[in-house]
Design a protein around this nucleic acid. Structure first.
Lengths: 242, 242
DNA sequence: ACAAAAGTGTTACTAATACACCCATGC
DNA sequence: GCATGGGTGTATTAGTAACACTTTTGT
């Protein structure tokens, strides 16, 4: 009625990137990088990193490229979040449908992420007013991360190859924002059989040296999309019947 | 290297529609409607109902339109499934990114769905070779339906406003393809507090007349996307603290 | 009375939780 | 020794699952 949109909807890829980093007070916090918009609409506002999809590029590759271009890092976990296509989500005439991914990057590397005036990291629970519907997107990504952490094995996306159970538990505690019983945590994780002890220990702390663990790579992650989920299910049913 | 794709990726919406219907043998089965392709590529092959996104139309509206156009029905449950964008998924030159939804329609209505030579219903566990990557999509939709049934309240998407516990259990048994203990099923569903007895009973069967139930509409469905999920979480936390 | 499905009760097993306690190391 | 975090044991509780049993209808 008011005005018609003639052009076909445009397609863009955006990525919500999570990492555990030191905030201003020195506490390790769940943070994500945002970029400042350099043109209208929403000029000057913070927004999710993103851009158009290259002609021969897969959707997940475009998301990984977003990640690389804004942080200089490689994703340790990457999953499609949702496609946002409300006609009213962009305020101007041209309609944009965004396919959004969410990613985890290794905490130790995240500290060395490239810095620039256009890119800034924000604590996940302290996000400013963003461009478009990006606040909604970040909230949903946060919900998905927290939900998935409790039933899946995504946590190691924040960690390196080898880690102690305390480090793993710390990831859970920071993301879920609540303390966890260390005894029960150990048993729950061990019962899931997703980790394997390397046999090595970490000395140097003024306490009993902890064991190092790796994730069992023969088990796939659950529900990382339609392509991997099937093989994960097959693998599980095979092992359980045997 | 071999050939370049210059045009921007096109956007399409497809929908996996589930209903419980009588199959050829007279058994109630999980089925879905497919349409026969009337042009290249994959001319003559069966494919998911779908088409382009109208300029001013929301993504879910386009999916509901797919559903209406192929079955003449309204969705009782509709949720985004995934965005498929592999550059190689379409065999010809022009690239199509499909945002796929999945839907449930009421079983009683599904029997009266419009019939045509181009639309045919197939049992979910007996799907022919489909066009493009549609077999993968159907498999993923099936996985999502079965997974979601076990922790969510989607089952009533197959049923009318009022139903008996046996009818509800039958839905679970058909979709999950395994028998369920009626006593435990009753207790599990009652414990979830998602259903409310209407006080009415169904007479006529040569057995004790069962109670009729409705779904509690004050509780939202979980994770029907980023828009509803937030309100569902808020509602739950409010009721639990009180 | 009998069949058939509704609905209840009981028991065993398994997973989640809380918390007390012991272990190994650096200082 | 003692502080610190690593790691174990145990009792309680809540949820799952298996299955025997009683209830109410139509024929």
């Amino acid at each position: 009625m008011t005005h018609r949109v003639a052009a076909p909807p445009q397609l863009a890829i955006s990525t919500v990137i999570f990492a555990l980093r030191q905030d201003a007070a020195g506490n390790t916090t769940l943070m994500l990088p945002l970029v400042q918009r350099i043109r209208e609409p929403h000029l000057g506002d913070w927004a999710l990193p993103g851009g158009p999809l290259n002609a021969t590029e897969d959707l997940s590759d475009a998301a990984a490229r977003n990640l690389r271009e804004t942080t200089g890092l490689e994703p340790r976990y990457l999953e499609q979040l949702y496609a946002f296509g409300d006609p009213a989500r962009s305020s101007n005439e041209e309609r944009v449908v965004s396919i959004v991914y969410w990613a985890l990057v290794e905490s130790s590397e995240a500290d060395q992420a490239i810095q620039s005036r256009n890119v800034q990291w924000f604590a996940a629970d302290c996000i400013p007013n963003l461009a478009f519907d990006h606040n909604l997107i970040v909230e949903y990504a946060l919900w998905r991360l927290r939900t998935k952490l409790s039933y899946s094995r995504v946590a190691h996306g924040f960690l390196g190859e080898e880690f102690t159970l305390s480090q793993l538990r710390e990831v859970y505690e920071i993301v879920l924002q609540k303390p966890l019983d260390k005894a029960n945590f150990r048993r729950t994780i061990e019962a899931s059989k997703s980790i394997v002890p390397t046999g090595q220990r970490v000395s140097g702390g003024s306490h009993r040296p902890p064991q190092l663990y790796t994730y069992d790579k023969t088990l796939n992650l659950t529900d990382q999309g339609p392509l991997t989920s099937k093989s994960a299910i097959r693998h599980n049913s095979e092992t359980s019947t045997k």
